[in-house]
């Protein structure tokens, strides 16, 4: 079983590659904002909160027969809820951001565990939610991911100038008469959606590195945020495909391999940057 011989006619692999491509676009764009605004911790909190949504979806599907409420729909619901909650609770310094994020982070995992415990039957697929299952992505999932990508692309194109000021000097928005809370809410929603897309590839536990590291590596070399986005998209796609290829033959866990590669690539590029300087 070889990645390169199967890639010609395995529809699983075609779908996995397409999923990696769709995820990389979101990762490159939104990851660049996350790195520029230094909000990696928020990604961790939102990604772990997805587990609550996934657990709820499983519970509803098994107990109530709501089959349309798929784990992807559940994670999208949880991701959006968590992003909006972070925005509302931390706006105008109502509550400390790190406190809110810690609560959402743990609450999401706790809710997930509780829902799964309440769901009858053997939970064989829990691992795939935690650590990813790029080879199990369905055609419906791909369409949903594509729709979210399109939404992210349009929103980022419309709001890029505002996001740039938000990341560079938040108060600059207030001084120009634009609501920081409104612009932050939009960015958080895009982060939530991106986390949902990436969790299809590497699972909720490993999203953080895949979203942040490609953009962080790109920012070492690029002068403008737009360039960071393009390089980060390419790096994310490269690491995802290489991780898939490396893990395919020996049957290693794909998500973990992708993350290990991403970290290695980041460290290598950081070393190159240091040597060049």
């Amino acid at each position: 079983m070889s990645f390169f011989s199967d890639i010609i006619d395995s529809s699983f692999l075609h779908m996995a590659l397409l999923a990696a491509l769709l995820a990389s676009v979101a990762c490159g764009i939104v990851g660049s904002y996350v790195v520029a605004r230094r909000r990696s911790y928020m990604v961790g909190a939102i990604s772990h909160s997805l587990l609550g949504g996934i657990g709820l979806a499983r519970l509803c599907a098994v107990r109530l027969g709501w089959t349309a409420f798929t784990p992807l729909a559940g994670s999208l619901l949880a991701g959006l809820l968590a992003s909006v909650a972070v925005s509302l609770l931390t706006s105008r310094n109502r509550m400390r951001e790190d406190t809110v994020l810690s609560a959402i982070w743990s609450l999401g995992v706790a809710a997930g565990i509780s829902f799964i415990a309440l769901t009858p039957g053997y939970q064989e697929d829990l691992n795939s939610y935690l650590f990813g299952s790029i080879l199990l992505v369905s055609e419906t999932d791909l369409w949903i991911m594509a729709a979210m990508d399109l939404f992210i692309l349009i929103a980022a194109w419309m709001l890029h100038n505002r996001f740039l000021v938000l990341c560079f000097h938040e108060e600059g928005l207030t001084l120009r008469g634009i609501s920081v809370d409104g612009v932050s809410l939009w960015l958080h929603v895009l982060i939530g959606m991106t986390v949902v897309i990436l969790s299809q590839i590497v699972g909720v536990v490993l999203v953080l590195a895949l979203l942040v590291l490609p953009a962080a590596a790109a920012a070492l070399f690029a002068r403008r945020l737009g360039t960071v986005m393009i390089i980060a998209t390419a790096l994310c796609f490269l690491c995802s495909v290489a991780g898939l290829a490396l893990s395919y033959g020996p049957d290693l866990p794909v998500g973990a391999t992708i993350i290990e590669l991403t970290v290695v690539v980041y460290l290598l590029l950081a070393a190159v940057k240091r040597i060049r300087n």
């Binding site: 660049s32 520029a36 100038n161 505002r162 740039l164 000021v165 990341c167 560079f168 000097h169 600059g172 928005l173 120009r176 008469g177 634009i178 920012a219 690029a222 002068r223 403008r224 945020l225 360039t227 960071v228």
Partner: peptide, 16 residues
């Protein structure tokens, strides 16, 4: 270390 060109930064003055 913010990744922006000089023109990007100046244009921020006209964001609204």
């Amino acid at each position: 270390q913010f990744p922006a060109s000089v023109l990007d930064v100046v244009l921020m003055g006209r964001v609204e």
